[in-house]
């Protein structure tokens, strides 16, 4: 296998993952999706590190990725605890809610053309019909002997 081409391909994939994660972090407003985007950027860097380790034929790239895994796990624990606490206070996962922490001289961000929440079509449970009323024989109903 051509080692330089392998390195090229992996660095390209790493750059793409990093860039897409950057787009997600900059543009999304849900805190959990922002966290996912950060993890995606970490994955991009991991892919690049493993590729460089393979190219230089040493273990250090992979060891560094293992340390990054540990850091990512710590980050996930702290981020989840913070997000849960923040969610308890505000009741939403919207990062824009926390603009109230801004300085006094900063203008407030006002949502333009915020869409109204979509009302889901309620699907009420329906009982299946327990049975179908049979055809009545008019003669039997008129001359029923046992009633």
């Amino acid at each position: 296998m051509n080692e330089v081409s392998l390195l090229h391909g992996y660095l390209t994939i790493g750059a793409l993952l990093f860039g897409i994660g950057l787009i997600g972090f900059l543009s999304r407003r849900n805190m959990i999706v922002m966290f996912l985007a950060v993890e995606m950027m970490i994955q991009g860097v991991s892919v690049s590190l493993v590729a460089w380790g393979r190219y230089h034929n040493n273990w250090d790239g992979q060891v560094m990725v293992i340390v990054m895994l540990a850091v990512a796990a710590c980050e996930a624990a702290i981020a989840m605890a913070l997000i849960l606490m923040v969610f308890e206070r505000s009741g939403k996962l919207d990062i824009a809610f926390w603009q109230r922490l801004r300085e006094d001289n900063q203008p407030e961000y006002v949502d333009r053309e915020l869409p109204p929440p979509e009302e889901e079509a309620r699907q009420w449970p329906q009982l299946s019909p327990a049975g179908v009323e049979p055809e009545h024989d008019p003669e039997e109903t008129a001359f029923r002997t046992h009633v």
């Binding site: 900059l26 407003r29 996962l93 919207d94 949502d111 915020l114 869409p115 889901e120």
Partner: peptide, 12 residues
């Protein structure tokens, strides 16, 4: 549910 308004807009 994914119908919160802030999930359906982006920053810039």
């Amino acid at each position: 549910r994914g119908n919160a308004p802030y999930d359906r807009v982006s920053w810039e």
